[in-house]
């Protein structure tokens, strides 16, 4: 019987301990978070949830590090054919598609609220009980006054798009160009160009995150715009917050690529790790443009 790696030189990995540790790690992570949340809600002073979460997070993080290292090492050992590399390319594309759908759920919620709910609670179309429950409520967007201000105190003001958000737009769009220039650096075999422009991209990502953190601080301390200031704050923070989390992950991915670039990885034929991180970066950029238009400009 032919060896299993002769199929178009297709390498089927042997048994691996990585997935079971990753499974245990991800389970402990979420189980820990669940315990932390329930302890906080019930007012129980316990560090059990935190301990489980940290154990799980370390296990998951360590396993993923080992996993990616192994894949990179296998690739460098020339165990992957072109066909096999295509599996990773397809896999990353479909992963990004799933991320697009995740954001769609939150954008959909925003559109639904703006198009229908605001007016319906305001009494349009004979919506019945809301008129009886909250007779003083007048529909408006941004929703500065919620139907039930005692539970959801509305913001005094919302974020203007033409200050910090515009700066962030410029930062992120620029970073999409810089990462492309870094990619050209790989293709031309110009290591210095790669290192320089990739470092600049990471810097732009980090500055973006700092500006966003400052924006949140401003929103909480001066505008009264918080997670619990009604549906405006809810959609604002959930959309920009998940985007910020993805920028964080994207920056981390680019930082890993920076480390690999400095170790001399990537050449014109073999740089999919870098390209995957760059695709992800373009994806968070496009999501940001959607946010800038629908959350800040049309929603502010």
């Amino acid at each position: 019987m032919p060896s299993e790696d002769t199929y178009e030189s297709y390498y089927v990995p042997h048994n691996s301990m990585l997935p079971i540790f990753a499974s245990l790690g991800i389970f402990l992570t979420v189980y820990g978070v669940g315990n932390m949340l329930n302890e906080a809600k019930a007012g129980i002073d316990s560090s059990f949830g935190m301990l489980v979460f940290l154990t799980g997070g370390l296990l998951l993080g360590g396993t993923l590090f080992a996993w990616f290292s192994k894949v990179i090492a296998e690739n460098h050992a020339k165990m992957y054919s072109d066909q096999m590399n295509r599996s990773y390319v397809w896999g990353m594309s479909w992963f990004i598609f799933s991320e697009v759908m995740f954001f769609s759920a939150f954008f959909g919620a925003l559109f639904y609220v703006r198009m229908f709910v605001v007016d319906w609670i305001g009494g349009e179309g004979d919506r019945g009980p809301s008129g009886m429950l909250w007779p003083d409520y007048t529909p408006a967007w941004p929703m500065l006054e919620t139907p039930d201000p005692s539970r959801f105190p509305g913001p005094h003001e919302v974020m203007s798009p033409w200050g910090l958000p515009l700066i962030n737009t410029v930062l992120l769009v620029t970073s999409s160009f810089t990462v492309t220039i870094a990619h050209h650096g790989i293709k031309e075999g110009n290591r210095q160009k790669l290192n320089l422009w990739l470092a600049l991209t990471i810097a732009l990502g980090v500055v973006f995150l700092f500006v966003q953190a400052y924006e949140y601080y401003h929103a909480y301390t001066e505008l009264g715009l918080t997670l619990s200031s009604g549906i405006y704050g809810t959609t604002f923070f959930m959309l920009t917050g998940f985007h910020g989390a993805h920028v964080t992950l994207g920056t981390f991915m680019l930082a890993v690529m920076m480390g690999r670039a400095l170790k001399g990885h990537f050449d014109a034929e073999d740089c999919f790790g870098f390209e995957a991180a760059a695709w992800y970066w373009h994806f968070v950029d496009v999501v940001w443009l959607g946010l800038f238009i629908f959350v800040y400009v049309l929603g502010g």
């Binding site: 919620t146 959801f152 619990s228 009604g230």
Partner: peptide, 13 residues
């Protein structure tokens, strides 16, 4: 976390 996605009192639904 006190969000209002599904609370009409906060403008959700």
């Amino acid at each position: 976390f006190g969000t209002a996605f599904f609370s009409a009192g906060g403008g959700g639904d």
